[in-house]
Design a protein around this nucleic acid. Sequence first.
DNA 1: GACACGTGGTG
DNA 2: TCACCAAGTGT
Length: 344
Amino acid sequence: MTIASDLLAWYDANARALPWRAPPGSALADPYRVWLSEIMLQQTTVAAVKPYFAAFTRRWPDVLALAAADEAELMAAWAGLGYYARARNLVACARAVATEHGGRFPDTEEGLRKLPGIGAYTAAAIAAIAFGRRAVVVDANVERVTARLSALETPLPAGKPMLHAFADSITPDERSGDFAQAMMDLGSTICTVRRPACLACPIAGACKGRDEAERYPLKAPKPVRPERRGSIFWLECDGDVLLCRRPPKGLLGGMAALPTGPWLPKDPGLADAPIETDWLLAGTVRHVFTHFALEASIYRATLPHVTLANDGGQSWFWAPITRIEQSGLPTLFAKAAAIARSMQ
DNA sequence: GACACGTGGTG
DNA sequence: TCACCAAGTGT
């Protein structure tokens, strides 16, 4: 038997039931749901995605509904899931599908690959899973499984092309979507990062790395994560708090946020405070991003009735404090808001 | 190729 | 506690 046939047999008996998957033995899954889930699952765990997928599909049941969505509402619905460029690209992609493709997703890798937010992995996954095309689907799970199967001694990312070629060599012509999902299920339940369960693996017989699976894949060492210091401002007025909209690109781009100062190696104090007033230090919040860690002071002040004019580049607005959880703040600011409110 | 880009779970 | 890492993409 081949690796593919052994793995597919295992998958037929052990596939995880996931909300975006078609029931076993049924027709192909809905391309919209496959696309939405694949975007949400980029660098994100199944457990984290599930509630967001349920909320999005209830609120926007198809790609035309999503294309018509208010962008700020969609960003707020994405708040907490991270990598917010995905949400910006999600809208752009839905609108491209609606206006340039008649509301239907392209059914080839090449066509899918042109859409915003869809890269090599996602294009292959949608083509295979939603459209039944043969495609070589390589994500971190597949890289780990194939690195172990082939006992690849070349560290990643340099070894990626070899793993893609190996994945291509074992991908079947039929059911390549199921094969891809089987590889991912195997990677998340058996061929795990730590303590892989080789004794339970349906393809251990073909695995060159099975005696030392945890060694693979070899990876280049990661650079150290720098520390930055910052300030976050909580300005109250009449039961409202001052929020702003982050610039459209960059860190937390396009998201609602509390006003901040610059984030630098040294404590910036009250630099870039939205107004000059008697700020009180309400606490600190620590948050770790992908490429730096932030420790921010939270400054608090209350205003009498005033209006705050927008000035260059800033886009401020007031939000009711009692419904701050519905403002769509990313996690850093949700944590800061909780700390600021706890000081009242 | 390298870096920017979030978050929460895990051992 | 903390480093690692997850169904990657864009620049």
